[in-house]
Write a protein that binds this DNA or RNA. Structure first.
Lengths: 246, 246
DNA sequence: CGTATCTTTGACGCAGTTCAAGGAAGGTGG
DNA sequence: CCACCTTCCTTGAACTGCGTCAAAGATACG
């Protein structure tokens, strides 16, 4: 399991390095993080809405999602978390979250104490800044999702999601943008795009005619540019420029 | 104009104090911030999507909105900013934003240099943490908007927005939650709730029967609890608990 | 090999869009 | 203070994307 730990933390560090310059000491500090490993089966909740948490969850493998729960039990997913994502990094400065966290597929996570993360941020201010940056990227992605839900029709909404996941999988070195695993059901994708399972299914059929297939939890895209066109996808919101230390 | 400056910064400090404990030195440091004052007329863009910015905008009066621009020119608003809000606090760690900022009504803002804010955050780590917290609250609100757009019908979406704005106006001491100014047109509210002007108008008519009126840029709510019920509104996402300094 | 979960399809209804046009409010210049 | 013009609000009628309900296949799993 130790190997798994290191692998996950390595992915997290790589994610930070996408947007922040960190020196060797800072990298080492991240790599020295320790946590408790847990395996969650598909469809289980990791964090219940409103729960007070004292750890952050680093995804080691699988796929997790943050969600908002409605009165009638319906759920709206507002973020996907893939391996290397530190979800609930938000809860380092604010310990009670309004949202919940669920495992979409079987998912192994590393629970890392807030105290440790806070200690790191305090000891290495530039590292703290990179954490802040990470939560801001998360916000930027959400702001795109707001636009997606508010102003696009269902094929375009799905197309946009598939573009985003493709980019993120490629950046994390977990697949190619035109061919990657997406460990979710159509129902879960429907929860993320604000539609019903039935309509998700029909819209996927439409996209299939554009060379986009989602079969057996794998996405394959014949013509990337065409999908980008359908989705009106502009990756700038993923904030992939490096920011120098201040 | 100096009086206006102080008033705005005072509001910003109050906003921080809602969630963070700051000592006297830290409060004074915030109050000593200086900026360039500007007045933007209604419908003008303050920041264009993709623009590189070196200042944050503190709203002094009026109402501003962050938006995502679609290919066809349509806009989706993903956040409202009222007086005391420091928009683009995000751009302190990341200077290029994918979103834009527009003035909904005539709005006066205070442009504050990133360098100054960064200096503050570096000098007073606890203050830096309160800035981080502020951007996290912004994210929490957006995550609610995602749920709102994805899973609620139009009267409920509007109701939720009116509840949120009521709470925020009251917290900023700019009105009562059941009676407050909302300096936006129906078209702008439609941009925020992902619908057309026509449907916004019709849905407002439905809400009027529930004692909710939006006339001449003022919201009045006869029965707050009923509106909360319609909206399925739970204010926990506004994160109003105080967080002790670390 | 059996059972639960997930996908796919059909028929029908409705919430919300589109197009079009009239009316009210508000701001500006004479 | 009125005349004018622009922006905003309001309503009607027709259309459509998506939801709902229902049921039959396909897939995965123990």
């Amino acid at each position: 399991m130790e190997a798994n730990h290191h692998e996950a933390i390595r992915l997290f560090l790589n994610r930070l390095l996408l947007r922040s310059e960190l020196d060797e000491r800072e990298c080492d500090a991240v790599l020295s993080l320790r946590g408790r490993s847990e395996v969650i089966e598909a469809h289980r909740d990791i964090v219940v809405p409103g729960q007070k948490v004292t750890t952050s969850c680093l995804i080691a493998s699988g796929l997790a999602a943050r969600f908002d729960q409605m009165r009638d039990g319906g759920r709206q997913i507002d973020a996907f978390h893939l391996p290397g994502d530190m979800c609930d990094l938000h809860s380092v400065p604010i310990s009670t979250s309004a949202w919940g966290l669920q495992a979409l597929s079987a998912t192994s996570i590393l629970m890392i104490a807030h105290a440790d993360l806070r200690h790191l941020a305090a000891t290495y201010p530039n590292l703290g800044l990179s954490f802040w940056r990470d939560t801001i990227v998360d916000g930027s992605v959400m702001s795109k999702w707001v636009g997606n839900l508010g102003r696009r029709d269902s094929p375009a909404r799905i197309a946009h999601l598939l573009c985003e996941m493709g980019m993120r999988m490629e950046l994390a070195d977990l697949g190619k943008r035109t061919d990657y695993p997406l460990l979710a059901t159509q129902g879960q994708l429907a929860d993320a795009t604000g539609m019903t399972v039935v309509h998700m299914n029909r819209s996927l059929k439409v996209l299939r005619e554009a060379g986009v297939s989602f079969v057996r939890k794998r996405v394959t895209i014949a013509d990337w540019n065409q999908l980008v066109e359908i989705a009106d996808f502009d990756p700038r919101y993923l904030m992939l420029e490096k920011n120098a230390p201040k």
